[in-house]
């Protein structure tokens, strides 16, 4: 077990009240495994990742409970100094928007090299050589010539490759990629996803892939965790979830994708809106939008039921959902 998140809770204090962004999330990632965390905006998928990385803005954020066990140590109990040694060296993050995550006034070579000078005390010259190596590795053409260029001189896909190079620099054991291809065009998105999957296999890292795109994860993920209103509602191996979802929310998401074989028909749409995190409905958070909701859903929060040894679903009626999917 590389990483285990146990009952993590994160709140944000705002003027209007306390927003519960993450309400008891549990997931695990093994060495060399790709876990896709799927959810819409506000589902808590990015906040969970930020809590793992230790880059949550506190305040207004606050970790209200839970544990994040990484390689046997609870990260939440570490001092900031020790935490900093983990961050970057043992785990690294790739962000959605490469342009705003890179420093516009430093050359990309300096930004990649900084990891080596800070974490490993390497000389600047050696760090630059390492930077060229890494840029080669993420297939940036003419890396030797481009190492001194600035972020604005690269295209979106190339900038995302530089982000990947920085994340890989110290060969971490875990990479968290937060919507790494959302800002890219489809043809470039395919390039970047292929590259990420390949490097992950090569280096045997654990990968948490955060996304809202059901299509992107189908190709690369081993397991999927679906989040809704700060909770995991379903986890399953990737193939099983697409064939037979065990939660009505997952089912609704899958059905609302326009399939290539049906056109012009009305799309299935999940009715209503995601809940306001300051007023999460009692019982199952999805109940106001759920076509299967019964009285019990409005009062009792469903635990993560065991569907099979590898699958969990937080739905009182997971059996019915599973059967309806056939």
């Amino acid at each position: 077990m590389l990483l285990e998140v146990r009952d993590l809770q994160v709140e944000f204090r705002t003027r209007e009240g306390v927003a519960k962004a993450v309400n008891g999330v549990n997931y695990t990632v093994d060495e060399g495994e790709t876990l896709a965390v799927l959810g819409e905006s506000g589902s808590g998928k990015s906040v969970t990742a930020q809590a793992i990385m230790g880059i949550l803005d506190m305040p207004p954020g606050k970790i209200a409970g839970g544990e994040i066990v990484f390689q046997g140590k609870d990260l939440l109990k570490l001092k900031e100094e020790e935490r900093r040694k983990v961050r970057g060296a043992k785990m690294a993050m790739i962000f959605q928007d490469a342009l705003s995550s890179l420093n516009p006034v430093l050359s990309v070579g300096a930004q990649i090299g900084e990891l080596f000078t800070v974490h490993q005390g390497m000389s600047r010259k050696d760090a630059r050589t390492k930077a060229v190596e890494l840029m080669d590795r993420v297939r940036i053409p003419a890396a030797q010539e481009r190492v001194g260029q600035y972020p604005h001189q690269f295209s979106g896909g190339m900038r995302q490759r530089i982000m990947i190079a920085m994340a890989l620099a110290l060969e971490p054991d875990l990479i968290i990629a937060d919507e790494p291809t959302t800002a890219l065009d489809v043809t470039v998105q395919a390039q970047v996803m292929d590259l990420l999957a390949e490097l992950q296999r090569e280096l045997g890292m654990g990968l948490i892939l955060i996304t809202h795109d059901l299509g992107v994860v189908a190709d690369v993920a081993d397991r999927i965790a679906v989040m809704y209103a700060g909770r995991i509602v379903e986890t399953a191996p990737v193939h099983e979830i697409y064939k037979r979802p065990a939660h009505p929310y997952t089912k609704g998401l899958l059905e609302s994708i326009p399939r290539l074989d049906q056109k012009g028909q009305e799309l299935y749409a999940i009715k209503g809106l995601p809940p306001n995190l300051m007023h999460i409905p009692p019982g199952c958070a999805f109940n106001p939008r759920c076509p299967m909701a019964q009285d019990v859903c409005r009062t009792d929060v469903p635990p993560l039921y065991e569907v099979s040894p590898t699958r969990r679903s937080a739905c009182h009626f997971w059996k019915e959902t599973l059967d309806a999917g056939q």
């Binding site: 295209s155 979106g156 896909g157 190339m158 065009d185 489809v186 043809t187 470039v188 998105q189 395919a190 390039q191 996803m193 292929d194 795109d213 059901l214 299509g215 992107v216 189908a218 190709d219 990737v238 193939h239 697409y242 064939k243 899958l254 994708i257 399939r259 290539l260």
Partner: peptide
């Protein structure tokens, strides 16, 4: 290049375009 959420769909031929527009 479009990722397909339909896992049962036959594996399409993948054409990976080089570079950018």
């Amino acid at each position: 290049a479009v990722p397909n959420a339909d896992i049962d769909a036959e594996k399409k031929e993948r054409i990976r375009l080089e570079g950018d527009v």
